[in-house]
């Protein structure tokens, strides 16, 4: 076992800021949806709007970070070990079988994570951002100009935004559970807080092809 610095500071900052913002957006969003009363409708709208702008700024920084540091490679989907990973969660985990994917600095994500996070990044979150922005700004700057949206699509935008919100909650539940499936129950959480994680360093076989190539380049 080796203690490895696996999550860099911006990565961690981004993760936790995003986590906070998404949970806050869900809380305020479902109040706007009419599911309950907590902050009060007016406050919920203002909090939701401001949190959304903060999140968009965070996204812009994060996109830049992903490309500047090459982190985007982490999200390139791969079929290698995809089946193994699924089988691990369905069967292996109960028998205490080893993780089929080894976590390294160069490959932090297992193939299932890659797929789900990529979906999150290029489908779900953009869907939420754009449906939300259109809803928010359909009449901006003020002056009653964009009539087509106003007439045809506000409900559609609302529905899309709601669907996305439910998917995010489902993701959040699954995510919160799956982080307990590391070495120990808290090792993944610890890693995301401190940046360091204990990683096996005895074998090399499970490193994915991309990582091998990447390792080779370096």
């Amino acid at each position: 076992m080796k203690r490895v610095y696996i999550y860099k500071s911006f990565g961690r900052f981004w993760h936790w800021a995003q986590a906070f913002l998404i949970i806050f957006l869900i809380l305020t969003g479902f109040e706007i949806h009419g599911s309950y009363t907590f902050f009060g409708f007016e406050n919920a709208v203002h909090y939701h709007t401001n949190a959304a702008y903060a999140y968009i700024i965070l996204i812009i920084f994060t996109i830049f970070w992903h490309f500047a540091t090459g982190e985007w490679v982490q999200y390139v989907p791969t079929l290698t070990n995809l089946k193994k990973q699924a089988e691990y969660y369905l069967f292996g985990i109960f028998r205490n079988a080893p993780h089929p994917t080894r976590k390294t600095l160069l490959s932090k994500l297992n193939p299932l994570q890659r797929l789900v996070y990529l979906g999150l990044k290029i489908i779900l979150i953009p869907l939420m951002v754009f449906s939300g922005l259109l809803y928010l700004l359909y009449r901006f700057p003020q002056g009653d100009k964009i009539n087509s949206i106003k007439i045809c699509c506000l409900s559609t935008l609302g529905y899309i935004h709601t669907i996305g919100a439910f998917l995010l909650i489902a993701f959040l539940i699954a995510h919160l559970y799956l982080i307990t499936t590391g070495h120990t129950i808290f090792s993944n959480l610890n890693a995301m807080i401190t940046g360091y994680e204990e990683i096996d360093d005895d074998k090399d076989e499970d490193v994915t092809i991309i990582d091998k190539e990447k390792a080779h380049e370096n």
């Binding site: 009419g34 919100a165 489902a170 699954a174």
Partner: peptide, 20 residues
């Protein structure tokens, strides 16, 4: 917003959360 919603979406969404 706050009054209107699509009942089908809400039912499916809640089902999804419960299933998860």
């Amino acid at each position: 917003p706050g009054r209107d919603f699509n009942p089908a979406i809400d039912r499916l969404g809640i089902a999804l959360i419960i299933l998860t």
